[in-house]
Design a protein around this nucleic acid. Structure first.
Lengths: 196, 196
DNA sequence: CCTGCAACTTGACCTTGGTCAAGAACTCCA
DNA sequence: TGGAGTTCTTGACCAAGGTCAAGTTGCAGG
């Protein structure tokens, strides 16, 4: 069963580079399994994000609180995705994001220190992380584009087409926060367009 | 003088990895110098972005036109920065961004093909591009956060503090587009707050 | 030096989405 | 199974920022 829990992450990595059996086990032994209850925090504002975290099951979100303590969701992470406060992770400085479990979640964490060891011992992981980062970067740019050029309704339509799986896991508030509107406006919008 | 034109890019790379003299010259010979007049396009919507482009002097912007043909600026690139339509570059599909020179600009282009050769011949460049991408990714996430949690005025204040150098090169329309407001609102905002 | 276009400004009005507060509807355990 | 907290909905009102069009200013090229 130990073996079983690494299947998803090895498949994830295997999409970008191929590993021998030894390399795979070297890699997996650098991972730290974690378990979070619904609403449990993985990271708090002001803490240094020391881990790059892979979601095995469940779902997490990263968000920040603005000056008025309003929550703004930056990303969701479903199974087979990674989550971190990248800015804090790469600089080593305290971050301003919270990361929280939306439902009961199993994770595998790769610490900064272990990532360095991994990259030194198996340099082809550089390639893997480059590709993962490129994709996440492209997704983030697209979100900037959408925020600038689409209406709230269009952003929601796009979200539901792109992440139908997440829709069922999230509260309306969370979807509203992600697309960048208030819960009350979101509720009105759904009603007006008979989307619920 | 050939040598001189590579100093900036070698310093840029040198911030992340160290290269021998041979590696440096292997790298620079994979670069294609380019020159663009003010307003000249480096990339058009619908074209495949085949190059990762380094700005030696001058300034460029990437932008898209929305359904109503309104321009939205995604990024600026001053000297010592890279610019590309990352999504098109990594997928090889036609992109939806334009890249255009704001002033007369000298560039060094690394094509996708040459990047592959470079990564194969000198694998430590994987690390370099991973780090460059991570930083660009962190900047993009921060922009998402700012778009969600700051007012137009706050976004402008942040922009002028962060990129004072760009302020002098850009028209008000371009700044307005980048911070995500119309030129007329931007003009009113400056006046209201005595910012000009 | 002048002209013609591009950039900026401004007025009047409009739209999208926010605020605050109160009520209705879930749910999750004890 | 029955509260106690969430979450969702809704009304009345508000504010940030957009639209359109008409000036004005500025400046680059002939």
């Amino acid at each position: 069963m130990m073996h079983h829990s690494f299947e998803l992450i090895l498949a994830n990595i295997g999409r970008h580079i191929s590993l021998t059996a030894e390399e795979s086990s070297y890699f997996t032994q650098l991972l730290r399994p974690g378990h979070y209850a619904r609403r449990e925090l993985l990271l708090m504002e002001g803490a240094v994000c020391t881990d790059f975290t892979f979601i095995v099951s469940g779902c997490m979100k990263s968000y920040l609180l603005d000056q008025q303590q309003k929550e703004h969701i930056l990303t969701f992470a479903a199974p087979d995705w990674w989550i971190a406060d990248i800015n804090s992770f790469i600089t080593g400085n305290p971050g301003n994001l919270f990361i929280q479990a939306i439902s009961e979640t199993h994770t595998l964490a790769l610490s900064r220190r272990n990532q360095e060891i991994l990259l030194r011992e198996i340099p082809k992981f550089e390639r893997c992380f480059r590709i993962l980062t490129e994709r996440a970067f492209a997704a983030s740019l697209q979100r900037n584009i959408d925020a600038m050029s689409l209406s709230a309704l269009e952003r929601f339509e796009k979200f539901r087409l792109q992440y139908p799986y997440l829709l069922s896991l999230l509260s309306d508030q969370e979807i509203a926060s992600y697309i960048g509107v208030t819960p009350s406006f979101f509720s009105r919008m759904l009603k007006k367009h008979h989307l619920k």
